[in-house]
Write a protein that binds this DNA or RNA. Structure first.
Lengths: 209, 209
DNA sequence: CTAGAAACAGTCGGGATTGACCGCTAAGAC
DNA sequence: GTCTTAGCGGTCAATCCCGACTGTTTCTAG
């Protein structure tokens, strides 16, 4: 069957950009919904609502598609975190009371779709060298960006603390480690006992002594 | 082709136990080598060196096999940790010097094959309810056991410390979180900068103030 | 000792997945 | 205006994987 293009006339650049974004968004969604092994090209193309030809034209191999999805995810994840941070930063208090708010805010970023998508990619990267090479530089940049966002969340006052850097690293890794079991636990992460632990530890590290 | 059994005569119980162990060990190996999606029943049966009939007789479905592999892994992981701990505990000093040794020992458990196998299962469990249900009780038991092993590693002196429990939880989750990026990083985990951070933090939590 | 079930061995069909491929349309260079 | 090529649409062959199934041997209960 032959079908004429129904799109409004567009430049090639626009078309390519649209197609890629459409497909990559779908790929990330599928990663979240079905996991790495369930994110087949067929499922992705269905989710994106594109033809097989269109998908394969832009991403000739599944590996390449998922590598691109990894990069796509990194930039999006950062953008989202920045927006969210900006939104919740306005009425944030200073001093010790700010600690609790910050920890709660940071903890939420560890059970969002983007986090799970990233985890799928990390896990898959362990046995997929192409994916690992793609992830390495991307995650480095992302990490630096995450750090700057985190710094803004905590605010200049806390950031000036001598123990701030240690606390930041410790909480970041601890939260990631605590988030993992929620792949199979179904209770709400917001009630995680670690939250209180983090609050107490952060307060002690920053304000005691 | 018809082939007579070449095995020495054995009871059914023994045979079943042998077959299951053989297959489950292979399944865990495949999980480590090829990841969850690469651990197909065909690959596992090849690794185990068993016929298709033998594999399917004991594990009629791939899901069931991987669920069983999860349980198998849990018990083995614990056993191994206990042995290792016992071996390295003998000449361990007491007091602050013990802290460094303990942290190094604990950190090694986060880049062993068993850890990666568990991570594959956790990740897969997120989009696989059957696996998630199997993991939940198993991990609960494992967690309790891990805790008791950890307690013995730290020793009674440190364990008596008021902040011990907080420190233990914090380090455990932080190590897990710090271990994840090593799916795509290829530098040696033993040089991870977090190690120094953990040592400093633990010492301060336990002995300062 | 004998029946019946467990413990295999090996084959096969159905379904899913991947990427090659052929053909067409429209964008953009000249 | 024409010509080249990017951007698709849709089909197909090859492959892989899972689990059903058939047949055979060994254990074990009675």
């Amino acid at each position: 069957m032959v079908r004429t293009y129904s799109h409004a006339p567009r430049t090639r650049q626009e078309r390519t950009a649209d197609s890629r974004a459409l497909i990559l968004d779908a790929a990330v969604d599928c990663l979240v919904e079905h996991g790495y092994s369930g994110a087949s090209t067929l499922v992705i193309q269905a989710k994106a609502g594109v033809s097989r030809g269109r998908l394969l034209h832009h991403f000739p191999s599944r590996d390449g598609l998922l590598v691109a999805a990894a990069n796509h995810l990194a930039t999006n994840r950062l953008k989202q975190t920045e927006e969210r941070a900006a939104a919740r930063l306005e009425d944030a208090p200073e001093g010790p009371e700010r600690v609790d708010r910050c920890i709660e805010l940071l903890w939420t970023t560890f059970h969002e779709p983007h986090f799970w998508a990233a985890m799928e990619l990390w896990t898959a990267a362990r046995t997929n060298p192409a994916l690992a090479s793609a992830l390495r530089p991307e995650e480095r940049g992302l990490h630096a960006a995450i750090r700057s966002v985190t710094d803004r969340i905590w605010g200049p006052e806390i950031r000036a603390n001598a123990r701030y850097d240690e606390m930041r690293k410790l909480l970041f890794t601890s939260m990631r480690g605590a988030a993992m079991p929620y792949t199979f636990e179904d209770r709400p992460p917001s009630t995680d006992p670690h939250v209180e632990l983090w609050k107490a530890t952060a307060r002690r590290m920053l304000f005691d002594e």
